[in-house]
Design a protein around this nucleic acid. Structure first.
Lengths: 244, 244
DNA sequence: TTTAATAATATTGTCAGACAAATAGGATTA
DNA sequence: TAATCCTATTTGTCTGACAATATTATTAAA
């Protein structure tokens, strides 16, 4: 839980102004729709040039916290909370530790939504899942055509009715794909072993538990469905250097 | 799953440049440490004024994707993936639906980390949990002093060893607090009912399962520990207008 | 009097240019 | 060779200007 701003090479005026603005919104308990002073006033009040203020505003605008229209001034808006995450999810720029953490995050979250899934489950959802499973192209060892893999799990998130969870999973989905591809040599033996032990759980198996409304069975099956990831993460966690 | 940029009132040049830069990084498969052209060159290449370019760069700098030092130019850096989320988590600016979704997210995630917790569990972690539980101030109906509540659950996340999960939970923790406070009148009857039925699961109860390394028991207990939230969310989901 | 067309005006978006501060790298000196 | 100084480069900040646009006021028309 170290500070995010580790080795803070010189806080710039823009950083400062950004902070000031965020504090200003919070302290005044401002809500979406509230209008904020125009650029000239803000710049003057903060004692900075308009260009500096605009850089700070531009950041907040990117986060979706403010909107501005010519002549009407600026208003606060409800930000899309995962917009920032979506922008930085680039597997090539993220370190291995982060990628692994995100994979672990995904697995944990998906196992955690079991309750929510069964609470919201309807017949039409089951129908949709059946169609997806039926149309899926399956390779050996429980490896699906990426599109089908994605479709099936997306539908599970959708069933929860929690849009934030859905968006989150959509955003970090490329990470799973990337890791599967990048570390394919680690996954293959794990999959082979699971296959030999008959421990492979397919989407079709998962669907059976869903149809029989067997929540506990589904959860256990889902855990086994993710076993490849879990093993992979466990192995790669051991090789990590001890945390600072 | 509508587009995030709903009713996009005029894409500005800055938005465009931001996109271009992100694409540029990805297409060139750039990694942290790689240096990027200086501002003059970039501005010229993109055909925009330096101020416009700087606004876009400022956004990326906020996300931690780039760092710049005078005379040494700019380099790509690994972003802190949840930095954007941290900035926009202000319960007053977020709509109720988002807040509820975040609460549901938190509950699902925490239930989902059970496996991870028991994989990484050590005696010293148990000791730390015991101290926390022992020193906690408990009010009636399983309501803890906020600090103690936070401490206990934080320790659970810590045990997973997944820093991303830890950071995420830390960031959205205020949401739980806010909701508990804001909707206290909804929580009280639920808590009272659970109490009468003897269904309250305390931190102390949870710790017992941890000490006996009873994963399934712990999971069920944890679900019950969150029952107040789950009920609250279920009730408030029903009153929601049907999704578009 | 009400409505429609037009002009004035305020605000954001973009551009251009300047200077300050810091520092990497070379030139100079001990 | 090592230490010091100087210069050039790059980012950070400031100032001022104009364009585009939507609001508001004004005027003309019904």
């Amino acid at each position: 839980m170290e500070s995010l701003r580790i080795m803070n090479h010189s806080i710039t005026l823009v950083d400062h102004v950004e902070d000031k603005l965020l504090n200003y919104f919070r302290e005044n308990k401002m809500k979406p729709g509230d209008s904020i002073p125009n650029e000239m006033e803000l710049a003057e009040a903060l004692g900075v040039a308009r260009s500096v203020l605009r850089e700070a505003l531009s950041r907040l605008r990117m986060l979706g916290m403010i909107e501005s229209r010519t002549r009407r001034g600026m208003i606060l808006t409800e930000p899309h909370i995962l917009g920032g995450l979506a922008k930085v999810i680039d597997p090539l720029i993220l370190g291995e530790e982060t990628l692994f953490n995100l994979l672990g995050f995904r697995v944990a979250l998906e196992i955690g939504i079991c309750n929510s899934i069964f609470e919201n489950l309807t017949d039409s959802y089951i129908e949709e899942l059946e169609i997806i499973v039926h149309n899926s192209v399956v390779y050996e060892n429980n490896v699906y055509l990426p599109v089908n893999e994605h479709e099936f799990h997306s539908k599970l998130y959708e069933i929860t009715g929690n849009k934030t969870i859905m968006q989150f999973q959509e955003i970090i989905y490329p990470v799973s794909l990337f890791i599967k591809d990048r570390f394919i040599s680690s996954f293959e033996p794990i999959n082979k072993e699971l296959h030999q032990k008959g421990k492979i759980v397919t989407h079709s198996d998962l669907l059976k538990y869903i149809k029989s409304r067997d929540k506990e069975g589904f959860r256990k099956a889902l855990e086994m469905h993710f076993e490849t990831y879990s093993r992979f993460l466990k192995e790669n966690r051991l090789t990590k250097s001890p945390t600072i």
